[in-house]
Design a protein around this nucleic acid. Structure first.
Length: 273
DNA sequence: CCTGAAACCTGTCTGC
DNA sequence: TGCAGACAGGTTTCAG
């Protein structure tokens, strides 16, 4: 489920309630249960983590790139959903835990926050130093720093293709495979263009397309996929992603699929040049 | 230093 | 029906 718009949607519902259930703000942690040792990243074992967080209140929930950042009095809980992670806040009486539930935060008021992750790629950090995990990230694509001029400067001299650079979290933090393809289509730029060959005008178009695509996806609560993540609607508005063989909505040319940087890549060979 | 490929995991779908 | 292989929203690690 996880690119920037999906993570933003999850964070908003953690703050105010909604698709993943009840809000988590102000609740007090009683204990933590971990069922997959690799999921929890903590300097100590799960028991020690549980004792460390016992008594802490949830004071904040926000997002940095694709990381969910939950603040308590003395610690930070960082969550990366990777490919298949999902969060839900529900009553302990909601029933048995489900298959692939990996980590549970139990609150003192009878609620629980559950991290579910089929593929076990997701991670939950509990730390007093969140910067150690977040320090390598690039600019927020929806932030003020991300300008056409900044992008032009970052792409100058880059020999990698533009799609690969868009997926590099140390350059721009938060774009994933879907929104890279959709943004490049919107900007009319071929995914295989060497990043350093983009003109200032193309950098401006690409920057605007990225912000437009991400903003619109957030308004749609992100993209939903068959077995993971429900509630978003942006998947109905994909113009190239997973539309191989279908006709381009602009010019009618069949959408093509190639592999770029090990990732499936979708584009219109006529509109993107 | 840079780049591309493999690895990490499980589930689903497709084609033979 | 069965089974091998491809593929999936991401990131880290390793080899060249």
């Amino acid at each position: 489920m996880p690119e920037l718009p999906e993570v933003e949607t999850v964070v908003r519902s953690l703050r105010t309630g909604g698709m993943t259930g009840e809000p988590i703000l102000d609740r007090q942690i009683r204990s933590v249960d971990c069922f997959n040792s690799k999921t929890l990243v903590f300097d100590g074992d799960a028991e020690q983590c549980s004792r460390t967080l016992c008594g802490q209140h949830i004071l904040s929930a926000d997002r940095r790139a694709k990381y969910i950042r939950i603040g308590t009095e003395n610690y930070w809980i960082l969550i990366h959903l990777r490919m298949s992670g999902d969060l839900r806040c529900e009553a302990e009486t909601a029933g048995e835990l489900r298959p692939h539930d990996r980590l549970v935060f139990h609150f003192t008021d009878g609620m629980r926050l559950v991290f579910n992750d089929v593929r076990k790629f997701g991670r939950v950090w509990v730390t007093d130093d969140p910067e150690s995990a977040l320090s390598g990230l690039g600019v927020e694509p929806l932030g003020d720093e991300f300008t056409a001029e900044w992008l032009m400067e970052r792409l100058t001299g880059q020999r990698r293709v533009i799609k690969t650079v868009l997926l590099d979290q140390s350059v721009i933090a938060g774009i994933g495979n879907i929104y890279a393809d959709e943004s490049l289509f919107d900007a009319g730029i071929l995914p295989t263009r060497p990043a350093g060959s983009l003109s200032p005008e193309e950098c401006g178009r690409l920057r605007d397309s990225i912000r437009k695509t991400l903003t619109h996806a957030i308004e749609q609560n992100g993209s939903s996929f068959d077995w993971a993540y429900k509630g978003g609607h942006f998947q109905n508005e994909f113009r190239v992603y997973q539309r191989k063989g279908e006709l381009c909505p602009v010019c009618g040319t069949p959408i093509e699929r190639i592999v770029v940087g090990q990732r499936g890549t979708h584009f219109c060979p006529k509109c993107q040049h």
